[in-house]
């Protein structure tokens, strides 16, 4: 089945809402300076699949695993890489909020493992 003509437009508009996966993926792209194509490659999917992911609610809460699994069962996407991207953005946002709370203004955060690609295995 071909992708609908509204898909890319809808994915772009979904970035405005922080509860969407579109927001998280866009945030990750900015933090890690990735192009859309690079992000799709990181997640092991096509750009069209990336747009479909954008229309999902960001998995969270106690059903996190179930939600991520459901997404990866419907779309061909690397589960581990998707979890890494979501967690990465959550951690950066949580740290940013903490720094902002303690100083009254946001400061850039140095990420120790910034150059790690999602899904890449690290040596123990």
């Amino acid at each position: 089945m071909s992708n609908p003509d509204w898909l890319e437009r809808a994915a772009l508009r979904a970035q405005r809402a922080s509860w969407t996966l579109a927001y998280t993926l866009e945030r990750y792209r900015q933090l890690e300076d990735r192009t859309e194509a690079e992000l799709a490659r990181d997640l092991g999917c096509t750009r069209e699949v990336l747009y479909w992911l954008c229309l999902c609610r960001k998995p969270e809460g106690p059903d996190f695993d179930t939600q991520v699994t459901a997404i990866t069962e419907r779309h061909e996407v690397d589960l581990r890489a998707l979890v890494d991207v979501i967690r990465h953005v959550e951690i950066v946002d949580a740290l940013s909020e903490r720094v902002a709370d303690s100083n009254g203004e946001e400061r850039p955060i140095q990420m120790a493992a910034r150059d790690r690609v999602p899904g890449e295995k690290t040596s123990p």
Binding site: W6, L55, C56
Partner: peptide, 20 residues
């Protein structure tokens, strides 16, 4: 329920084309 990630995608799949 807000605990099913794919529900929002399904809303787009179901309503986007006919309302347009």
């Amino acid at each position: 329920k807000k605990n099913e990630s794919l529900a929002s995608q399904d809303v787009f799949r179901v309503f986007m084309a006919p309302i347009t």
